[in-house]
Design a binder for these strands. Structure first.
Length: 121
DNA sequence: GACCTGACGCCCC
DNA sequence: AGGGGCGCCAGGT
């Protein structure tokens, strides 16, 4: 995981990066949320922007990626417009027990989950 | 090939 | 304490 990927092909490393982002995203427990920065920090690859870029292509993934559990560091649903419908993201969050008010998660600190917590167990 | 933009976030004022 | 600037890396124009 800490090992940097040798350069191989650019396409391969891109797909690999996609896979890593999807993988971490799928680790977010139901009813919890994480942030672009936390995922970028955990992967130690690219930047928070690249996480958003990767998630933007999650429709290419065969398996369902719970992209609705990824928000910006303020708890705002900045990616909601990229879902099938503008309200789908908050609908999914609400259905998991996460309160959303005005496109923003209420009590973000209570729901925030950092991938690093996985290793602390 | 330069320039802008983005599902971001830190630093500075 | 709120707002703006800039770095980040890849794609689109």
């Amino acid at each position: 995981m800490a090992n940097r990927k040798p350069e191989k092909s650019k396409d391969q490393s891109r797909d690999h990066y996609f896979y890593r982002v999807y993988d971490v995203t799928c680790l977010i427990p139901k009813g919890r949320v994480s942030t672009y920065g936390a995922i970028a920090d955990f992967l130690a690859l690219g930047s928070a922007r690249m996480v958003g870029w990767a998630l933007n292509h999650c429709h290419s993934a065969e398996e369902h990626v719970p992209a609705h559990r990824v928000v910006n560091r303020l708890g705002e649903l900045s990616g909601r417009l990229h879902f099938a419908t503008p309200t789908l993201m908050e609908e999914r969050l609400e259905s998991e027990g996460v309160k959303v008010k005005d496109h923003k998660i209420v009590n973000m600190d209570d729901y925030f989950w950092h991938p690093r917590q996985l290793e602390e167990y």
